[in-house]
Design a protein around this nucleic acid. Structure first.
Lengths: 148, 148
DNA sequence: TTATTTCCTACTGTATTAGTAGTATATTAT
DNA sequence: ATAATATACTACTAATACAGTAGGAAATAA
């Protein structure tokens, strides 16, 4: 399972929303700028995320997007699965209707399922609140705003 | 990281070699047949595996391929990394020279590294001997050769 | 009404993947 | 030696997915 650029952008966009104080909609333009994503592509992605219930939108002047979910309860896994489908390194090999008559069929199924579980667990345990916190901690460490 | 068909075929080919008693070279044709791979594509893959030192070849009549490594000490990870490069779900995002100036840079790096480690561990612990054994156990269970 | 911004559909260039084709080269059996 | 067989190697191609663009329609606030 490769994480596509689009999917990475989606995660970035949500992180950007999660990081800002809520209450006011944020423009795609701002999100695109902050996260270095093509503005037009950002539109598409945010619109898609809206259909998935991850963000809310407001049109017109002073419009934009707001996070629709609590960052503490929103995992990376959910977003990935919505944008690029179920996490799997070898989707065809796991299907039950696949070719089953060769030696190794069961062993490979088992292998890929183990891999998928491992990935799913990591992504399912990582919330956007975690990520915001992690990033802020890192930045504080590197650029301390106090002197000895 | 998606596991490409080619890579899956490579794993299958090696499993097929690991499963058979060694000593005699096995023809690509037989491997292709047993594992349901396009014969011509099998050639390419086996040749590539030879350059990686995974198999040995013998040309001419009664020629074919033989496993060059001990299945007990050969892991799935090695083959995957040889055929499609280092295991990573988001190679660009992990590089150090990448764009670092946006919020989330560090958090995403950490995330993808966790995912990669998880996958690498699973694949690095699975040997071809394991897989042959697993498959044989499964088959014995389903088609027992004894009666009560 | 005007400026702004989301919403929606369709299109396009590029890269990767999966597989094919043709031929050269090596080995063995006879 | 020669015919038959099988690997070795290079190049090509069709299909698919990915990443991003283009153009306008609809909604909202001032």
């Amino acid at each position: 399972m490769k994480i596509s650029k689009k999917c990475q952008y989606a995660l970035k966009a949500i992180l950007e929303l999660a990081r800002r104080n809520p209450g006011k909609p944020i423009k795609t333009h701002d999100i695109a700028n902050a996260q270095r994503i093509s503005p037009r592509f950002t539109e598409i992605i945010l619109n898609e995320l809206k259909h998935g219930g991850f963000v809310e939108s407001r049109r017109g002047n002073e419009g934009g997007y707001m996070l629709a979910r609590d960052p503490k309860a929103l995992t990376v896994r959910e977003v990935i699965e919505y944008i690029q489908g179920a996490i799997s390194v070898a989707p065809e090999a796991i299907k039950d209707n696949g070719d089953t008559a060769f030696f190794g069929n069961e062993a490979f199924k088992e292998l890929w399922q183990e891999v998928n579980s491992a990935v799913t667990e990591v992504c399912g345990n990582k919330t956007f609140a975690d990520m915001v916190e992690f990033e802020q901690a890192k930045r504080e460490k590197c650029v301390p705003n106090y002197c000895i």
